[in-house]
């Protein structure tokens, strides 16, 4: 029983992190059809900003991370993606990949390829014990933070003008433009939000790993892609759901696979992804108007 609760906490915590990652990617995809590889590098930039500000008081350190990553995300849109508005999906994808590659290489130039240790406030490491169940406070922080963020995002999308415009743009960008939604502004807001989620993800990931490396963002962004696509492209809730599902599945596989197969855990996970794609090529949460009419 105890073990089960422990696993459940792990699963929900990992799922929350993945949902956060997926939201950051889906936000941009819904509006401009761009699967942004360089989202991973925003996380990487966040990690290094935590490293650079390691001697400052922790609230300042976290604030620096948020500000730097959001600024980087906005700069990314302005400098790299704006010239490519309207380009085809493969071109956008390769652009974002090249950008991601460039930022990784640049990080190698500046910080070297070896991992840099980053210390975060110690309360992330403490473990909390309730009855016979004990878990790290990081797990708790992750879950709470993601719930708050998703709630905040939902409120933002529903209550504010920009939020409503973003939803309209995600639904049908061309029409939204016709009714006066300012494309560049909406996209900039989306990049800011995406940057925000990357910054939070960076803090959580660094708190867990304790290091920053140039390739830190690669596997998170791939997880985000998978979650976004199986969740249903263009749907934020679908993406969050996809992320949660992926996190839970990862932990379930960890637990149920016999030792001899345990190393193949990721292989099983991705086999599951293929099955989901085959069964629901449009994703688990289908957005209407996605199907082209004859």
């Amino acid at each position: 029983m105890t073990a089960l609760i422990q696993h459940a906490i792990d699963a929900v915590s990992l799922g929350s992190l993945y949902a956060l990652l997926a939201l950051g990617v889906a936000m941009i995809f819904g509006i401009m059809n761009l699967l942004n590889f360089a989202y991973g590098e925003l996380i990487m930039i966040g990690a290094y900003s935590l490293y650079v500000s390691r001697d400052l008081p922790w609230p300042v350190q976290l604030a620096v991370c948020l500000i730097v990553v959001i600024a980087a995300s906005l700069a990314m849109d302005r400098l790299a993606f704006r010239p490519f508005r309207g380009a085809s999906a493969p071109v956008l994808l390769v652009t974002s990949f090249a950008l991601s590659f460039a930022l990784q290489s640049l990080a190698t130039v500046i910080f070297g390829s070896r991992a840099k240790g980053v210390s975060l406030p110690s309360f992330f490491d403490e473990s909390i014990t309730i009855g016979s169940v004990s878990f790290s406070s990081l797990n708790l922080v992750t879950v709470v933070l993601v719930i708050v963020l998703v709630g905040g995002l939902a409120t933002f999308l529903r209550q504010t003008t920009v939020g409503v415009q973003m939803r309209a743009a995600a639904e049908n960008f061309t029409t939204a433009r016709l009714v006066g939604v300012k494309a560049d502004r909406v996209i900039a807001v989306a990049f800011a939000l995406s940057g925000f989620s990357a910054a939070v993800a960076a803090i959580l990931i660094v708190a867990q790993r304790g290091t920053a490396t140039p390739t830190l963002g690669v596997s998170p962004v791939l997880i985000a892609f998978v979650a976004t696509i199986i969740g249903g492209l263009g749907s934020l809730y679908g993406a969050a759901f996809g992320g949660m599902l992926l996190g839970v599945l990862t932990v379930v596989l960890q637990v149920v696979l016999p030792d001899s197969l345990a190393p193949y855990r990721e292989a099983f996970l991705y086999a599951g992804v293929i099955v989901v794609l085959l069964a629901r090529p449009q994703g688990l949460v289908v957005v209407k108007a996605l199907f082209e009419r004859v």
Binding site: L222, V226, I229, P263, A267, Y270, A271, I274, L277, L278
Partner: peptide, 28 residues
Amino acid sequence: FPISRLSGLAAALAMFAVLVIVYQVGIN
């Protein structure tokens, strides 16, 4: 047979999943 039924990003991603699986089997 499964892959050729998918299009667009779903196909791209399913093939990525294949890549991960082959890699994981390779290292294990």
